[in-house]
Amino acid sequence: MKQQEINFLSDLRKINSAPVLHENQKIKLLNELAPYLNKADWFTVGIMASSSMQAIIALKTMENRFNWTAMKLVTQVKENGPVFLKANQKTGDIHVRIEFGLGEGILLGCQYNEESKNADTLGPFPLNFFD
């Protein structure tokens, strides 16, 4: 896969599928991401992956890294195929559905309890970004 010119979180908004990142790009993006993570009251996570297992592993990695309470799988798929996983930290629910035509990656929604603050959706990050 061709290396993308990704230097800032805003560069990710221009693409539909997560890029391959060098370690120095990952570190730079994690540093830029830190203030968003610290300000948000809770998170939603959207994961586009080639399988349900791959998406769940990426989410569980995020739960471990950020010491989130484990969320529960409410809706899952029985067939194989590309999926979209939607996790809501506030409700603790995870829903997975088959979805064709998506890219691959993690979308992180930084949510706020105060309605006057707009949610920030960041990504797509590579599925292994939070390892």
Rank of each mutant, 00 (worst) to 15 (best):
K72D: 14
G92A: 09
S51N: 13
E63L: 06
A49D: 02
I98H: 06
L33C: 07
S116T: 15
I94G: 13
L29D: 02
A18Y: 14
Q89S: 01
V20L: 11
T75A: 10
G103L: 12
I27G: 02
C110W: 02
S116M: 05
Q25T: 07
K60C: 04
S10G: 09
R97Q: 02
N16Y: 10
G109V: 08
L107W: 06
L73V: 13
M62D: 03
S51V: 11
L107Y: 05
W68Q: 01
Q76M: 12
A49I: 07
A49N: 04
I94T: 11
L73N: 10
N31H: 10
F66N: 01
N64T: 08
D11S: 01
M48G: 01
D93L: 04
R13W: 10
G103N: 06
N16P: 12
F66P: 00
Q76A: 14
E32D: 03
I94L: 14
L59W: 04
T69F: 13
V77M: 00
A119T: 15
Q25G: 11
I98M: 11
L59E: 07
L30N: 09
L21C: 06
S17Y: 05
K86L: 12
M71C: 02
N118I: 13
G103M: 11
L59S: 05
D120L: 00
L30T: 03
P82D: 14
W42Q: 00
A49K: 04
D93I: 09
N118E: 14
M53R: 08
L107A: 04
Q111H: 03
L21H: 07
F66T: 01
A18I: 11
A49H: 07
D41C: 08
L73Q: 12
F100M: 13
R13E: 15
N64F: 09
L29R: 03
S10N: 11
P19Y: 03
T61F: 04
G46V: 09
R97V: 02
G92M: 08
L33A: 09
G81W: 06
I106G: 10
G81D: 05
K60P: 02
F66I: 03
V96R: 04
A119D: 15
N88W: 01
H95P: 00
D11I: 11
T121G: 02
T69V: 10
H95S: 14
H95Q: 13
L33E: 08
L29W: 12
N118R: 13
M71W: 12
A18D: 14
S50W: 05
Y112M: 07
K117W: 09
G81P: 01
L33F: 14
A119N: 13
L33V: 10
L29Y: 05
K117A: 01
H22W: 10
L30Q: 15
Q25W: 12
G81T: 03
H22N: 08
V45N: 09
A55I: 14
V96D: 06
S10I: 13
A34C: 11
E23P: 01
D93C: 04
T91F: 04
K60Y: 13
E115F: 09
N31C: 11
L59K: 08
W42G: 01
I106S: 12
L30E: 13
P19T: 06
I106L: 14
T61E: 07
